[in-house]
Amino acid sequence: MEMRSGEPSGKVKEREERGKRAHRNSSQEVLEWRESFDQLLKSKSGVNAFHTFLKTEFSEENLDFWLACEDFKKTRSKTKLASKANRIFEEFVQNEAPREVNIDHETREITRKNLSGATSACFNEAQAKTRTLMEKDSYPRFLKSASYQDMSRQAASRGTSKLSHT
């Protein structure tokens, strides 16, 4: 069996194929982000690209809050649930919070009341409002942004070059 860099040639080819698939998947993924906001949020690299874009608009707190809520829902310990809930509320929800999200007074009050019996659902309404705001406002701007347009063009050209070479 032929050896390259200490690996059997089959292993080298397998690694190259895996790399090509990952590249193709990431190209496909970039193009899927424009299909729906959900597609973007399902993708780790999509969330990272969207976060970078939001930073340029000084509005990343909405996504950070949404991500904190997603993480919060996975908390199983009652004690941790209560302390995490208070931390999230103080950072994002209360009036004059350091990274206050843009939600109406009623939702803010409902969320504050939910803290007294913190459950994994106590931020659901506030999280849903922030998600809708991002989907209707920031997401369309992200899709029109130069950074996404560049990623999209590169992904599309990688896709078409793959087709012509196969």
Rank of each mutant, 00 (worst) to 15 (best):
D64Q: 03
D38A: 10
T75S: 05
F37L: 07
K44Y: 07
D38L: 15
S36I: 10
S36Q: 12
N62D: 00
F72V: 10
L40C: 13
K42G: 15
S43G: 15
T52F: 11
L67E: 04
N48T: 15
K44M: 07
D71I: 09
E57D: 03
S36T: 14
F65Q: 06
E57H: 06
F53Y: 08
D64E: 06
K74I: 06
D38K: 15
T75K: 04
F50G: 11
T52C: 08
F65T: 06
H51V: 01
F58W: 05
A68R: 11
E57C: 06
K55G: 07
K74W: 09
K74Y: 06
K42Q: 14
S36L: 09
G46P: 03
W66K: 10
N62R: 00
K74A: 07
E35K: 12
K73W: 09
T75A: 05
T75F: 09
S43Y: 11
F65P: 04
E60T: 00
S43H: 13
K55H: 09
S45E: 03
T75Y: 06
T75M: 07
F37T: 07
E70L: 05
A68C: 13
L67S: 05
S45N: 04
K73F: 15
L41H: 01
W66P: 14
V47F: 07
T56K: 08
F72D: 10
K74C: 07
D38H: 15
Q39E: 13
T52G: 09
A68H: 11
L40E: 12
E61H: 04
Q39T: 10
E61P: 03
S43D: 13
S43W: 10
A68Q: 06
G46I: 02
S45T: 02
E60N: 00
E70K: 05
L63N: 03
G46M: 01
L54E: 02
V47Q: 02
A49F: 08
L40T: 15
S36H: 15
A68P: 06
E57M: 11
L40M: 11
K73E: 08
G46S: 04
F53I: 10
S43R: 13
D38I: 14
Q39D: 12
L67M: 13
L41I: 03
G46D: 02
D64N: 08
N62W: 00
S36A: 13
G46L: 01
A49I: 13
F58Q: 08
K42H: 11
L41T: 01
D71V: 13
S45Q: 03
G46V: 01
W66I: 10
K73R: 09
L63Y: 05
F65K: 11
E70W: 05
E61I: 02
K42S: 14
S45A: 04
L40D: 12
C69L: 07
N48S: 11
F58A: 03
F65M: 07
E61D: 04
S45I: 02
E57P: 02
A68V: 11
E57I: 06
L67D: 03
T75C: 10
S59M: 09
F58M: 04
E60L: 00
E60I: 01
G46F: 00
G46Q: 03
H51M: 01
N62C: 00
K73L: 15
F53S: 07
G46E: 02
